[in-house]
């Protein structure tokens, strides 16, 4: 077992993936090639260059501090009911304020 194969086994575990020996062997060859190709990156001088993790944020106005109706509810009710009705069954509504429950039982 090469050092790279041991690395692959460890990375599989980190990535929460399982594999058999044949898959591990195939991946070993692929990653040998891949890491060789990635050596390209060292050809570009990057001293003093800031990393680029995300596109520059534009100045965005803050959203209002209140929930907004997105229209998703209407979309779900409009198209979902027919195909997966069981997911839209609403449980009984319980009034925690001490009054009667929606179905008439005590809260």
């Amino acid at each position: 077992m090469t050092e790279r194969s041991d690395d692959i086994r460890a990375v599989y575990e980190l990535a929460a993936l399982t594999a058999d020996e044949a898959e591990l062997a195939a991946m070993s060859g692929h990653f040998e090639k891949m890491f060789k190709h990635l050596e390209d990156l060292s050809r570009v001088p990057v001293d003093g260059v800031d990393p680029y993790f995300a596109l520059p944020l534009r100045e965005l106005p803050l959203m209002p501090d209140r929930p907004e109706r997105s229209g998703a509810e209407a979309a779900i009710r409009g198209t979902f009911v027919q195909s997966a009705e069981e997911f839209l069954v609403v449980q009984r509504v319980v009034n925690r304020g001490g009054g009667a429950c929606a179905d008439g039982e005590e809260g």
């Binding site: 692959i8 990375v11 990535a15 993936l17 990653f31 570009v44 800031d50 990393p51």
Partner: peptide
């Protein structure tokens, strides 16, 4: 797997961080 690998501690600087700089 490659993504997990390049974000791992031993490889982060040489691959992910460097790639982010080359992207700049």
């Amino acid at each position: 797997l490659l993504g997990t690998w390049v974000l791992s501690r031993a490889y982060y600087d040489s691959y992910y961080l460097r790639a982010a700089k080359v992207r700049t």
